[in-house]
Amino acid sequence: MTTALLVPASSAGSVDDAVGGLTGLSGALARFIAWIGEPGVFVATVLETVVPPIPSEVTLPLAGFIAAQGGMSLVLALVAATLGSVVGALALYGVGRAFGEERAVTWMAKVPFVDREEVQHAVDWFHRHGGASVFVGRLLPGVRSLVSVPAGTTRMPLVRFVLLTAAGSLLWNGLLVGGGYALGSQFERVEQYAGYVDYLFVAVVAVVLVLFVRSRVQRARRRGGSLEDAL
């Protein structure tokens, strides 16, 4: 497997320049990915999923940038990121399944930088929208990781959970890794504009949810049910 350790000198210099411009937790993860390669992408994505404050919006575009410089395989980077998302989601699914909703919410609220309100919001959102929220939730900030907890507490079928998580994660990770790859030498713009990606996805998901709720309401009316039954 090709890693960042095998990057040609000129490419390695470009990678070092980009990594050197990042500070704090983002910079630490960036240097970790640049050093280890695809396995680093996997580890960073697992951590991002289990500890929500870790920013995939920075680390995954960096993986794409390193791939563009020849430091790793673009396809393997995307596979590693998606596998990491699934593994991290399974860990949170296991927490929910093992402890139940109330204890799982309490436990997750003790994770640094995670508020109980955020966890409860993800739980409520799952209960409102059901299994589809596992796929859509991977595209939403604040729900992306935590939606796995109520999926576990309700004992959602594991195969369905994995498939929906993998599909949503592949879409999200593909956008970020592909964005870093496309930017190439313009990587410094990633950190500047990464925040706008969340807003874009919120808008897209809002439209999807409106159409979803509309279809549920129409189905309930055809069956003679109430609006509450539809939702």
Rank of each mutant, 00 (worst) to 15 (best):
T59Y: 03
S133P: 08
V204G: 02
A18T: 01
L60E: 02
A80R: 08
L175C: 10
G40R: 02
V143A: 13
G195L: 07
Q192W: 05
T2P: 15
E57F: 04
I36Q: 12
A109C: 00
S215W: 07
G37L: 09
T3S: 13
R97H: 11
Y181G: 12
A67W: 12
G152T: 13
L158G: 07
V210Y: 08
G225M: 14
L47A: 13
E48L: 03
G21Y: 09
M108A: 10
V7Q: 12
A104K: 03
P157Q: 09
A98M: 13
M108N: 06
T3C: 08
A109L: 02
L74H: 05
N173F: 04
A12F: 08
G88D: 05
G71H: 06
V134C: 05
A18N: 06
S10G: 15
A30H: 03
L170F: 13
G225D: 14
W107N: 08
V58E: 06
F65Y: 13
A91G: 15
T153W: 02
L29Q: 00
F65I: 02
P53M: 00
A77Q: 07
V105D: 08
S169I: 11
V58I: 15
A220W: 00
G71K: 06
E188T: 14
A44F: 02
E228Q: 15
R155I: 02
A34S: 11
F212D: 15
Q120M: 11
V19T: 01
L6D: 15
T154H: 05
G168L: 04
I66F: 05
S215I: 07
G137Q: 09
G40V: 01
T49I: 04
E191D: 09
V197W: 09
G84W: 09
E188W: 11
H121A: 13
V197H: 09
M1P: 14
V43Q: 06
R128C: 10
G94I: 10
L211A: 11
R214A: 14
V87S: 09
V202I: 14
L227I: 14
T59M: 06
G152C: 01
R160T: 12
L227V: 14
S85E: 03
F212A: 14
V208Y: 10
V149L: 04
L83H: 10
E57M: 05
M1F: 13
R128W: 11
P8N: 14
L140R: 03
V51F: 08
F65E: 01
A80I: 12
Y181V: 05
E118L: 11
L83W: 11
V147M: 07
Q192K: 14
V51N: 00
A68M: 10
L62T: 06
L29D: 00
R97I: 10
R223V: 10
P150K: 05
G180I: 02
L183E: 01
R189Q: 15
L200R: 12
G152F: 03
V15N: 08
A167R: 04
L170T: 09
Q192M: 14
S169P: 03
S10I: 11
S85M: 07
E117D: 14
E188C: 12
A206I: 02
Q69P: 03
M108S: 11
P141M: 03
E118Q: 14
M156Q: 06
V123F: 04
Y193E: 10
G184K: 01
L163M: 09
A230C: 07
V111P: 00
A166V: 01
D16K: 11
T106P: 06
S14H: 15
G100R: 03
V205K: 01
V105N: 01
F135W: 06
A109Q: 00
S56Q: 00
